[in-house]
Nucleic acid binder design. Structure first.
Lengths: 337, 337
DNA sequence: TTGTACGCGTTATCAC
DNA sequence: GTGATAACGCGTACAA
């Protein structure tokens, strides 16, 4: 059961290592091996189920065909979609993905990044660099890393990143509401300590001048708070929607939007007749709510694809300088708005 | 930018490699290095930001602190929860996770497994071995692998696995319905080509003798079919629920259950008064539907934990023989049943 | 055409 | 206490 090595093959086939290499993995140097010898070597390799040791191979400077992925310990719905997209593309190109989870702080993130490098990854994608108040540390640790790509714009420019325009997603939603004749749209959003939420808020404020009274925050620090949030929906309908006389709401999480639909129905308000509702993420449930939920699709497949492509470009080293791309969310229009 | 190696440290500190190793990574051999020398070496290492090359380290037989995870190209909700749980535990124990996606066939799965081994992983967890009709191949490729753990019972015994009792999950749901006085429970389930669904079906049939007329299959081969499935819900209410005079339904996917709730409301049927509904997966949306959805919680955190612990046991080689554990789903009781 | 020798970075075993 | 030296498995010049 001990791993069969190059030498085992060579001994078994009665040749030396170099010949085996030429037949099995070489390729680049002119392959001048007698066909019958080559065939014999291949037969032995197959019989012994030879598998080259990738760590030894990496030691000689060859690519591991491996990329690293920095993720936060709590994977959001969006990040899961990005992760699966990147993983799929990597697999299609013969790459593996090594995940490094980080523990909610900058130090842990940098440590994880370093460990990925120690493993000899070809490049790294970061989905977990949004640590409010640590922008300076982030820049010090991660600026000028050629084989690193960020999902979401970080606070500095010397890097590769995919700019996810959360602000434009909200803008599209609000514009859609206004075009449908809504006069007083509001927004129900999560705690704006994180970059994406702040961008969403900015997108809303850009179109709604009197935004202060039109925004309500659902503080969902703990992911297990859903029960409490669901219980709070009737109060949100009374105080926020009826209180502010809103005729439309953009909700930054689909499940909250579904909860809002339920509370509106209980209160006897019609959607979209009395109040239009737009969710965010375009999760599966949007098709099954009543009415079916219009939702912002953050286009995470496009994000994942852009991340992968940028990483490959930087790994293959075509051209220099840092790269950036932009992904703009789309509106998946259904019945609720 | 070329990686700084052990030799660089040794040269800079004016000692030889062995001394550096004893100070920086050794630990096991009695540390007989003069304190001032040790301090000097540590200082140089810190200044040069030395990071040992893990591939070279692996070559000498030491653990990579790395585990492999075999996943299917389409990650189910359950598998995502298992993945994140395993990843979290691994990170807590200083391990990394390498993901290998497989392309829906046995050959690809085995190839992915082999590549993980080539990378020198300490062990492998498989979430993707459910290929109907390929049981013999599965056994041939994966039986008697000491450092491999399956999530879900495979078709043979010479392996480590966590037995996820999908059947008992359904049983608990049906028992709950019967205890509440339901007389004619039905089941809305996905295509029973996969093991988990077949187990669910078995669990249902064990309690419901006349199951044939009480089961309806939603064929969700394509994940993008939700729109069609949502549109079919009214017909399911008419033909299946009213047609079979059911007073309760267990639905094997929460989003379908939410769609059913919507269709029942449109038809003027009360939940749980006229028809009780139980979903499956205990997704976030269960808290936000109306009524809030009772759902089977497959206890994926327990599954992930069991997988991790079994893998660590087999890696650390305590005792011999194959291990198995059982995880039983729980019922998360809310309003709909 | 095939074989030899060396380097990759680390660890372990001996001498000193 | 410290310094040579030999593995580990593979790739690659270069020599035969």
């Amino acid at each position: 059961m001990a791993n069969v090595t190059l030498i085992d093959i060579a001994r078994e086939a009665g040749v030396c290592k170099a010949t085996v290499v030429k037949v099995l993995s070489g390729g680049d140097t002119n392959i001048r091996v007698r066909p019958e010898t080559a065939e014999r070597i291949r037969a032995v390799a197959a019989r012994l189920q030879y598998r080259p040791n990738l760590n030894a191979r990496a030691l000689t400077g060859r690519s591991m065909h491996l990329i690293g992925l920095l993720v936060d310990s709590v994977l959001s719905y969006s990040n899961i979609q990005i992760l699966t997209t990147v993983e799929r593309l990597a697999a299609q190109h013969g790459y593996r993905v090594m995940i490094a989870e980080t523990h909610n702080d900058m130090a842990g993130l940098h440590e994880s990044y370093q460990i990925l490098l120690q493993h000899g990854v070809d490049g790294v994608i970061s989905l977990a660099h949004d640590y409010p108040g640590e922008e300076a540390t982030l820049q010090r640790c991660f600026a000028n890393q050629p084989h690193l790509v960020f999902a979401g714009r970080p606070s500095f420019d010397e890097c590769n990143y995919v700019d996810i325009r959360y602000d434009l997603g909200i803008r599209k939603a609000v514009e859609h509401l206004l075009a449908r004749g809504c006069r007083r749209p509001g927004m129900l959003m999560e705690n704006p300590i994180y970059g994406p939420v702040r961008l969403q808020e900015a997108g809303f404020r850009a179109l709604v001048p009197e935004a202060d009274s039109r925004i309500r925050v659902i503080d969902s620090a703990d992911p297990g708070d859903d029960e409490r949030h669901a219980a709070a929906m009737p109060a949100i309908v009374e105080e926020f929607i009826l209180g502010q006389q809103l005729d439309a709401v953009v909700v930054t999480t689909d499940v909250f939007a579904v909860g809002l639909l339920s509370a509106l129905a209980v209160r006897g308000l019609r959607v979209p007749g009395d109040v239009a509702v737009i969710g965010n993420n375009n999760e599966r449930v949007c098709n099954f709510s009543m009415p079916r939920l219009t939702s912002i699709d953050e286009n995470n497949v496009a994000v994942g694809t852009a991340l992968w492509e940028m990483l490959m470009e930087s790994v293959e080293g075509t051209g220099s300088g840092f790269r950036r791309r932009e992904v703009i969310p789309q509106l998946a229009i259904r019945e609720s708005a």
